[in-house]
Lab assay of single mutants.
Amino acid sequence: SQHQEELPPPPLPPGWEEKVDNLGRTYYVNHNNRTTQWHRPSLMDVSSE
């Protein structure tokens, strides 16, 4: 059986914070524009500005 090492997730872009809601779900807060989202932001998402 193949065992895959879990890679650590990439660092969050500046201004982002990973949080967990009261149901144990992980979400991400963008403090730059005060938004939240479910999927993890990547540095590539942000660098397109």
Rank of each mutant, 00 (worst) to 15 (best):
S1Y: 09
S1F: 15
S1W: 00
S1Q: 00
S1R: 00
S1L: 01
Q2E: 02
Q2N: 15
Q2T: 08
Q2C: 00
Q2S: 00
Q2W: 00
Q2F: 05
Q2V: 04
H3W: 00
H3L: 07
H3D: 15
H3E: 00
Q4M: 10
Q4R: 05
Q4K: 15
Q4T: 13
Q4V: 06
Q4L: 05
E5L: 03
E5Y: 11
E5S: 15
E6N: 15
E6G: 06
E6D: 07
E6Q: 10
E6I: 15
E6R: 06
L7T: 07
L7C: 15
L7W: 02
L7V: 11
P8H: 10
P8F: 04
P8Y: 03
P8M: 04
P8I: 15
P9C: 08
P9I: 05
P9V: 13
P10S: 11
P10C: 14
P10G: 10
P10Q: 06
P10K: 11
P10M: 13
P10E: 10
P10L: 09
P10W: 04
P11C: 08
P11V: 13
P11I: 05
P11Q: 14
L12S: 07
P13V: 07
P13W: 03
P13N: 06
P13I: 03
P13A: 12
P13S: 08
P14Q: 10
P14H: 09
P14W: 06
P14E: 14
P14A: 13
P14K: 15
P14F: 12
G15N: 09
G15P: 10
G15I: 01
G15Y: 11
G15F: 08
W16A: 02
W16E: 05
W16S: 03
W16P: 00
W16Y: 03
W16H: 00
E17W: 01
E17K: 08
E17A: 09
E17F: 04
E18Q: 06
E18A: 09
E18T: 09
E18H: 06
E18R: 06
E18M: 10
K19N: 12
K19R: 06
K19Y: 05
K19W: 00
K19G: 02
K19P: 00
V20M: 09
V20Y: 06
D21L: 00
D21Y: 00
D21T: 11
D21G: 02
D21H: 01
D21V: 00
N22L: 07
N22T: 14
N22E: 09
N22A: 11
N22V: 06
N22C: 08
N22Q: 10
N22R: 12
L23R: 14
L23H: 14
L23I: 08
L23G: 14
L23E: 14
L23Q: 13
G24E: 04
G24F: 03
G24R: 05
G24D: 08
G24Y: 03
G24H: 07
G24A: 06
G24P: 01
G24K: 08
R25M: 11
R25N: 15
R25Y: 06
R25K: 12
R25V: 11
T26F: 04
T26L: 09
T26D: 04
T26E: 04
T26Y: 01
T26R: 09
T26M: 09
T26W: 03
Y27A: 04
Y27L: 05
Y27N: 01
Y28N: 01
Y28V: 01
Y28M: 00
Y28D: 02
Y28W: 06
Y28L: 01
Y28C: 01
Y28R: 01
V29Y: 13
V29I: 04
V29A: 09
V29Q: 09
V29P: 02
V29D: 03
N30Q: 05
N30S: 15
N30R: 02
N30F: 02
N30G: 04
N30K: 01
N30C: 11
N30T: 03
H31Y: 14
H31L: 11
H31V: 12
H31T: 10
H31W: 10
H31Q: 06
H31K: 14
N32C: 07
N32Y: 07
N32H: 12
N32W: 05
N32R: 07
N32D: 13
N33C: 09
N33L: 13
N33W: 14
N33T: 15
N33F: 14
N33Q: 04
N33R: 06
R34T: 10
R34Y: 07
R34L: 06
R34W: 02
R34G: 13
T35R: 07
T35S: 06
T35P: 01
T35K: 11
T35G: 08
T35I: 09
T35N: 06
T35M: 08
T35A: 11
T36E: 08
T36V: 04
T36G: 01
T36M: 05
T36H: 06
T36P: 03
T36L: 01
T36D: 01
Q37G: 02
Q37R: 02
Q37W: 03
Q37F: 01
Q37Y: 01
Q37N: 04
Q37L: 03
Q37E: 02
Q37S: 15
Q37M: 04
W38L: 12
W38V: 09
W38N: 03
W38G: 06
W38Q: 15
W38Y: 15
W38H: 06
W38T: 11
H39Y: 07
H39D: 14
H39N: 12
H39R: 12
H39K: 15
H39T: 14
H39P: 08
H39S: 15
H39I: 06
R40I: 01
R40N: 10
R40E: 04
R40A: 07
R40K: 13
R40S: 08
R40F: 02
P41M: 00
P41T: 00
P41Y: 00
P41G: 01
P41N: 00
P41H: 01
P41K: 02
P41Q: 02
P41W: 00
S42W: 04
S42Y: 03
S42T: 10
S42K: 13
S42L: 09
S42F: 05
S42G: 10
S42H: 05
S42V: 12
L43I: 07
L43C: 14
L43Y: 11
L43K: 14
M44R: 13
M44L: 12
M44K: 12
M44V: 05
M44Y: 07
M44D: 14
M44A: 10
M44P: 15
D45Q: 05
D45L: 08
D45W: 03
D45I: 02
V46D: 13
V46R: 12
V46F: 11
V46W: 08
V46P: 14
V46L: 14
V46M: 06
V46Y: 03
S47E: 11
S47Q: 14
S47V: 08
S47R: 09
S47I: 05
S47H: 13
S47F: 08
S47N: 15
S48H: 04
S48P: 12
S48M: 06
S48V: 10
S48A: 09
E49R: 00
E49K: 00
E49D: 04
